[in-house]
Amino acid sequence: MIDESEFRRVIGHFATGVSVVTSCRGDGAACGLTVSAVSALSLDPTLVLVCVSHGSETHGWIREAGYYAVNVLEEGKGETLARRFAGGGGEEKFRGTAWRPERTGAPVLDESLAWLDCRVSAALEGGDHTIFVGEVLAADAREGTPLLYYRGGYGRFES
């Protein structure tokens, strides 16, 4: 098996988009975390997957709520959101961040470049993460440039 640090070094060469996955806690408060493991899975039905660490405080709330939103971040202000949602702090993550509940009740961040509102249709265990497969119930996007993550840092497309 490959060493964990070597795996991180090698997989870090794969540029990914940066998203904040949001849901709600049992008391209705918003929760969320920064993720880079998001993928379209199927067009019929429309499915998207997110990979969430078992150690994340948001993990159990997604499982309990049965829904989540994927908020694709934009370059610029998106890096601040990515860093804030990557840490702990629960409700502090949402302080000063405008959002609205979407169809499922999942929080959609106003500053998102794109968003997908999903109902969990499957939860698959994958090592120290759960792969939440969600049926997309609503989605939207606007023009802009996505925030990227590459080799441990944030970046953008050069045009």
Rank of each mutant, 00 (worst) to 15 (best):
I62T: 05
A106G: 05
S39V: 14
T16A: 04
D128L: 03
A122Q: 15
E143C: 01
L47S: 02
R103P: 11
D3M: 03
R119C: 03
R151K: 13
A114T: 03
L73K: 03
E74V: 01
R63W: 11
G28Q: 10
D140R: 09
A40L: 05
V21E: 12
S121C: 14
S53F: 04
K93E: 00
Y154V: 04
D3P: 00
Y154Q: 07
R103N: 11
V133Q: 11
A65I: 04
G78F: 03
N71L: 02
W61G: 07
S159V: 14
A86N: 07
F94Y: 14
E143N: 09
G96D: 11
V18Q: 02
Y150P: 11
S121T: 14
V133L: 15
R83K: 14
R84H: 06
P45K: 07
S42W: 06
V108S: 09
F94P: 15
V38H: 03
S53W: 07
R100S: 15
T130N: 01
L33V: 11
A40F: 01
P45N: 05
C118E: 08
G152S: 09
G32N: 03
V52S: 02
T97K: 08
A122C: 10
P107F: 00
G55T: 13
T130E: 09
G17M: 09
L113D: 00
A98P: 09
A15F: 00
A123K: 06
S19F: 12
G89F: 00
W61P: 10
L33H: 05
C31G: 07
L124E: 13
Y149F: 15
V38N: 07
G90F: 02
L81I: 05
S121M: 13
G126Q: 13
T80S: 15
L41N: 04
C51I: 02
C118D: 08
A122R: 14
C24T: 15
L41D: 09
G105P: 08
G153F: 06
G17E: 11
L113T: 07
H13F: 10
L109W: 00
V38P: 05
G155F: 08
N71C: 00
T80N: 12
S36Y: 08
L109T: 00
R8D: 01
L43I: 06
V136K: 08
T16W: 02
D128V: 07
E4Q: 14
V133E: 11
S5P: 09
L116Y: 09
V133D: 02
D140N: 12
E74C: 04
L73D: 05
E74T: 02
V38I: 15
E6H: 13
L81T: 03
V48K: 01
S23D: 01
V35P: 01
F132W: 04
A139Q: 12
D140C: 04
G28T: 09
H129T: 07
R8Q: 10
R25I: 07
Y149R: 04
E79T: 01
T104M: 10
I131S: 00
H13K: 12
C118V: 08
A98S: 12
K93A: 01
T97N: 06
G78K: 05
